[in-house]
Amino acid sequence: MAGGILDPDGARDRLEAWKGRIDKLAADTQAMSERFQNVRVTVNDQNGLAQVTVDSTGAMVDLRLTDRIHRVPPDEVARAILTTLGQARGELADRSREIITDTVGDSPAARAIAERVGNRLRGNESARVVSQDEDDGNDSRTYLRER
């Protein structure tokens, strides 16, 4: 059976081709992970009050305030920081999408990963309270867990 299921040479060729695709996917995924780890985004607020830097997880790793904060109410400074943090996370989500597309391509799986990362960074991912009965822990506190 030339090229059929029972053809050992054909099966070997298909297996080698499959292994090649898996090896490439593994290398691309590793490259994506390394690029993610090095990403930082810095954004300045529009009023020149604050500069926020986030790391690859969206965590704020630096906050710089200008002397202008002394001329505005504290709640405006707080609002500027939070707004700028949200903008930085949004830019990080966009950059993450670019990294995913550059490293693993534009496939349905890549788009799903990018969407999930974007939702998490933009705060769109819902959470729910998990009771002890649902949790695998031993204490009676509740936890937030992604859906």
Rank of each mutant, 00 (worst) to 15 (best):
I113D: 05
T29P: 05
L82V: 04
T103E: 15
N38C: 05
I113G: 04
G48W: 06
S33M: 10
G10R: 02
I22H: 06
V117W: 04
A50Q: 08
E98M: 08
L85I: 07
T103L: 04
I113H: 12
T53L: 13
Q30F: 06
E98D: 14
A31D: 07
A26N: 11
I100T: 03
V104A: 12
A59K: 13
W18S: 09
S96C: 08
T57N: 13
R95L: 11
R71A: 05
V54A: 15
Q51C: 15
D13T: 02
L82R: 14
D45V: 10
L63M: 11
Q30D: 13
T84C: 15
V52Y: 00
E76P: 01
D102P: 04
V54W: 07
I99H: 03
D136K: 09
E34D: 12
N47A: 14
Q132H: 11
N38F: 03
A27G: 07
A88N: 00
A88K: 01
H70S: 13
V52A: 02
S56W: 05
D135K: 09
K19E: 06
D139P: 01
L15Y: 00
S33N: 10
A88I: 02
V39F: 05
T29D: 03
R111S: 15
V104N: 12
G48P: 05
R122E: 12
R64F: 11
R64Q: 15
G123W: 04
D135E: 03
S126E: 11
V77E: 02
T83F: 11
D136N: 13
D75F: 06
R14P: 00
D28W: 07
R64M: 12
E91G: 11
G86V: 02
T53E: 15
L63Q: 08
R68P: 01
E134T: 02
Q87F: 09
I22S: 07
N38R: 11
A93Q: 09
D45Y: 10
A17M: 05
A93L: 08
R97V: 00
A93F: 08
N138Q: 10
A59I: 01
R71G: 00
E134C: 12
V130R: 15
G137M: 11
D139S: 07
L25I: 06
Q46V: 04
V129S: 10
D136G: 14
L92Y: 02
A11E: 00
Q37R: 14
N47I: 00
L65D: 02
